[in-house]
Each structure stands twice: as structure tokens, then as C-alpha cells.
């Protein structure tokens, strides 16, 4: 697996797209920090960008990379290696190169800003952790969709729908249901519904760390009320881990029986 991962990673870190993605975060980081002059505000703005953008980029890159490397995957499948090794190696290579673009792209401007001396370092850390989780989660989901769909157009369509659903439609439905069932106790429902959306979950993880109650919203407040800040963070981290582990296991399962 390490061999596959190594070369896929080499290939991707030299790709124009990875550079463009890195430069985007670099520019965003510098602009946010030096225009707002307030680390907390910059982190919140960045959070709003990251929780939508990393899933989108992970989804598109995941689907694109899978379809582009189909013939190469065939060549690898003819080598003396387990199937799961090939797919998991490719998945980790892609996710890690994207996560690294995010980490370096935002990390460098913050280092320049003197983050290491500021107390905001942990807030900033939670931002990067959430971004990295979202990258791994959405690349895995995109891979599952691509492996299950021979037709590229369909695969792309489903993947974009998946992103749209989790990033935008889910919140809409969630809000509507809160309004409609206003008369009922909805705390537990809200808590569970959040678990099923990694984007909401990472938003709450960051907000709990920042401890800005005005921005919590309903779910954030429920999280804090029921679980408290530290337990809330531990649980949201654990559920995010599950969001990586289960899709990865699914890739493994599907890849075992797939024809190429």
C-alpha cells in the first residue's frame, strides 16, 4: 500500500490543480488575516469557506481522479497485489495531497501573522483538523460513487448531488423540520440529525472550540447543553472518525468484486 500511496502522492503534488488549490488557500489566508486584523473573525470567515469548499473540492477531485486513472488502475490490478491495497493506496494518496494543500496554504499566512505567539493557535488547529477530516470524508464518498458507476456523467452527477445534499439541502430540510415540529421536544432529533452530516458536525466542532455562543445556532447550543464543550468535541471528533472509517471500509468492500 505504501508503494502505491507514495507514487500516487508524488504524481498529485506535482499536479497543476493541487498547486492552484494550495495558492487559493494561501491567498485567502493572507487576505483574511491582514484585512480583518482579528484572528477570531478571520477564523470564522475561513470556517464558512472551508466547510463548503473542502467537501466540494474533495468530491470533484475524487471523482475526476478515479475516472482519469481507470486504465492505470487496470495495469496495477495486473500486478501481484491485493485489490484493496491498490484502491486504499490511491484514496490515501489523493486525500493527503489535498489535505496538505489546505494545511500549508492556510498554515503559512498564519505563521507569518505570528500565530505561534497568539492564543488562537488551538482555534486555528480545530479549523485545520475539521478541513482535513472533510477532505478525507468527501474523497471517500466520491470514490464510492465513482467505483459504483461505470458511466462518468452519471458518476459526476451523483457526486455533485451528494455534495449539494449535504452542504445545502440537508440544512434546509433540517430547518423546515424544526419549524414544522416546533411544538415537540426536538433536542435529541437535532443531535442525531447533526451526526448524519459531516459538514454540520465539523462546523460544530470548530464553534465549540471557539466558544462563540452567538454563532452556535440550534444544534450547536444543543450540543453544548447536552454534552458540554469538551465531551461535545470528543464526540464530534469520534463521529467524524466514523465518517472516514465506514466509507473507507465500503471502498474496500466494493472494490473486491468490481470488474475493470
Amino acid at each position: 500500500m505504501l508503494k502505491i500511496f507514495k507514487y500516487i502522492f508524488f504524481d498529485l503534488v506535482r499536479s497543476r490543480w493541487t498547486y492552484a488549490y494550495f495558492l487559493f488557500y494561501l491567498a485567502l489566508g493572507f487576505v483574511m488575516l491582514f484585512l480583518s486584523n482579528d484572528v477570531s473573525k478571520a477564523i470564522i470567515t475561513l470556517m464558512n469557506v472551508i466547510v463548503v469548499l473542502t467537501p466540494l473540492v474533495g468530491t470533484i477531485f475524487g471523482v475526476m481522479h478515479y475516472y482519469n486513472s481507470r486504465e492505470f488502475t487496470e495495469l496495477l490490478l495486473a500486478q501481484p497485489m491485493k485489490r484493496s491495497t491498490i484502491f486504499i493506496g490511491q484514496y490515501i494518496g489523493l486525500s493527503l495531497s489535498l489535505a496538505l494543500s489546505l494545511l500549508l496554504g492556510l498554515g503559512i499566512p498564519f505563521l507569518f501573522y505570528g500565530l505561534l505567539r497568539s492564543s488562537a493557535i488551538w482555534d486555528f488547529g480545530s479549523l485545520l483538523v475539521a478541513g482535513a477530516f472533510l477532505t478525507f470524508i468527501f474523497v471517500a464518498l466520491a470514490y464510492i460513487i465513482a467505483i459504483s458507476n461505470e458511466n462518468r456523467i452519471k458518476g459526476f452527477g451523483y457526486a455533485i448531488l451528494m455534495w449539494l445534499g449535504l452542504a445545502i439541502i440537508y440544512d434546509g430540510l433540517f430547518l423546515i423540520s424544526l419549524l414544522v415540529f416546533d411544538d415537540y421536544p426536538l433536542d435529541k432529533f437535532a443531535l442525531i440529525a447533526t451526526m448524519f452530516n459531516p459538514i454540520d458536525l465539523s462546523r460544530i466542532l470548530i464553534l465549540l472550540k471557539l466558544d462563540i455562543s452567538a454563532l452556535f445556532g440550534y444544534t450547536g447550543a444543543t450540543f453544548k447543553m447536552f454534552l458540554g464543550t469538551s465531551l461535545g468535541m470528543v464526540i464530534s471528533l469520534l463521529v467524524l472518525c466514523m465518517w472516514v472509517v465506514i466509507p473507507t471500509w465500503l471502498i474496500y468492500r466494493i472494490a473486491r468484486k468490481r470488474d475493470f
Binding site: D11, S15, E71
Partner: peptide, 8 residues
């Protein structure tokens, strides 16, 4: 079909 990683 010969199709390899483009940046290697």
C-alpha cells in the same frame, strides 16, 4: 490502452 499518471 496505455494511460499513466500524467505527472510521473
Amino acid at each position: 490502452i496505455a494511460n499513466f499518471p500524467t505527472n510521473l
